[in-house]
Design a protein around this nucleic acid. Structure first.
Lengths: 336, 336
DNA sequence: CTGAAAGCGCTTACAG
DNA sequence: CTGAAAGCGCTTACAG
């Protein structure tokens, strides 16, 4: 049951290990035809598979990247992972997926582990809780890209939605449909998570742009567990909102739950715009509008950039914020 | 920018590499207190991180398993991955996730890659297209578990739903609600994918158990792209079905699309039972019933078994089929 | 065109 | 209680 090594191949083919290695690495430049054939035969006869671990140790490259997502159960994350994996595959890179659970402690553990495994680079949905660690990676010129979120003051490429514009599109859509009392529901922005902050800011700006007042009673930014009572408050006002923007899937869920439990009608009594897509939204009721993120494109672009940084490890890159545009969908969702 | 190695630590602590290695591996048995302290200090002073690749090469273990899913975009797969990852984490194992896209060629490539990386074991949602390869892993006594599907004649543990019972529960539910004309919609069973075959078989058996005839016109098993015309046929019958079982999420989607496009009312005109959960199903309309799989439990159990096999690599295990019971949910979905 | 030798960073008997 | 030496399976200058 012992594994076949390069030595076995060399013996069988009557050449040295070096030559077999050349063959494996496709350095055929000076290799005799017959040598090549002998090696080829030996390999297939023995069913030889190079040991990638040994190669990595020597080459100090693993042809593997790590992806640390906040939560793999979010469909946005899944799509991004999928896109990253596709891009990596095309370039003969492998992907290790990790879940940080939005927990800085777990995130740190995973980053350390990936570094110890000599992973060539990482794509991270950062928790924001490991500033020193992010910085140390920058110092080492270690290849990293951020997704979905950016960290102020950390010099790392970030790939994220144009969140302000997304909020603006949502508000514009509702204004166009005649609404003037528009509310917004977002998770707590205490931890300054980029999309939450930017979507809320964008929402307020958009109201002003459209000549509407910013009414604090229409803005609920709080832990998801408190949203039901927040919504109850909002809907006890004399001037109830007639439309709501739900800034992510969790808040949308709470909004729909509230709507259902209170027997409100969509869109007659309350019109709702959500972020990201709900699978099956096309074929279910009520029909909602969504700001969809180009998840696959974001994943692809982030992966390409990461691979480029890995390729040119010696080059010092200027880090950039890469913004992606959302698309507004009504009832029907895009295929991606 | 050169990495700190064990040699650097040894030098700084004025001990040999061996001793540092002992320390790293927590073999303190005979280690002097002061030696221990010196090493500890040296490590933290240098910010030393052991190179896992080198360790793996020597130990011939990587403390990593691979998961090959058919499609990461399915929420069932995501949940299973998540559960496997949690279990692995508790045991200091890492997880590499791969997408086979239900393509045997891709599956083979991934399996080879994982083997070359000296991964300690694999959890696979098998395509069924690589019998020889599965067998060769069995021959090597390489630790593998299958998920969601089993492969006839291949001696590997499989963790899957009690599909026949699931179909039976679906039929029973509908019969209890007074239905006698019950249809079923499943993807093509040409490739003999376990859940599809078993769910269809189970459906037929359940009809008989409940004294209902098996009507071929009520059974549509075909490529998802042909389902719309299949459903059209079914609903052109004089005796239309009054209830439908959709055996997975894709077929459920087609059913709901058909229902919506044809303005049918759920549940008045047609009652629907699906498999797996649709996120948001609780708060949307129409309210459906679902047979939910205990995805987290399945992932956990599969991972535990896999780790056990890795732990006791020398032991020859009897392979078993592990069945899990579905739960019928109406409108409301379970938290997992 | 091919091979001998050194080395990647660890671990592990074994000797003392 | 600690260290010298060999070795895991590769790759890579370098020599010839």
């Amino acid at each position: 049951m012992k594994r076949i090594t390069i030595t076995d191949v060399a013996k069988l083919a009557c050449v040295s290990k070096s030559t077999v290695s050349q063959y494996l690495n496709k350095r055929y430049d000076y290799m005799g035809e017959t040598t090549k054939l002998r090696i080829e035969n030996a390999i297939s006869q023995l069913g030889y598979q190079p040991n990638i671990v040994a190669r990595s140790l020597k080459q100090k490259r693993s042809s593997t990247i790590g992806v640390i997502v906040a939560n793999i159960l979010h469909s946005f994350s899944t799509k991004v992972i999928r896109a990253i994996e596709d891009t990596c595959n095309e370039n003969d890179f492998h992907v290790i997926v990790c879940n940080a659970d939005d927990d800085p402690v777990k995130e740190e553990k995973y980053i350390q582990m990936l570094l110890a495994k000599q992973i060539d680079g990482m794509a991270i949905f950062p928790t924001g809780g490991n500033l020193a660690l992010y910085d140390s990676m920058v110092k080492m010129n270690y290849p990293v890209v951020f997704l979905d979120r950016m960290i102020e003051g950390v010099n790392i490429d970030a790939f994220l939605l144009d969140n302000e514009n997304a909020s603006n599109l949502a508000v514009k859509h509702l204004v166009d449909r005649g609404h003037t009392r528009i509310g917004v529901v977002t998770p707590s922005i205490e931890r300054m998570v980029t999309p939450r902050v930017e979507r809320l800011e964008g929402f307020k700006k958009a109201l002003k742009v459209h000549g509407l007042p910013v009414t604090n009673e229409y803005i609920k930014s709080m832990g998801v567990d408190k949203l039901q009572s927040g919504l109850k408050e909002m809907f006890s006002l004399c001037e109830k909102p007639t439309a709501l923007v739900a800034s992510n899937d969790l808040t949308l869920f709470e909004v729909l739950k509230f709507v259902k439990e209170n027997g409100l009608n969509i869109p007659e009594e309350i019109e709702v715009v959500g972020f990201d897509d709900i699978p099956f939204a096309t074929v279910l009721e009520p029909s909602l509008s969504f700001l969809s993120q180009p998840a696959f494109e974001m994943g692809n672009k982030a992966a390409e950039r990461l691979l480029e940084k890995i390729e040119k490890r010696d080059v010092l890159f200027e880090s950039e914020i890469h913004r992606f545009q959302p698309t507004l969908f009504q009832g029907q969702l895009p295929k991606n």
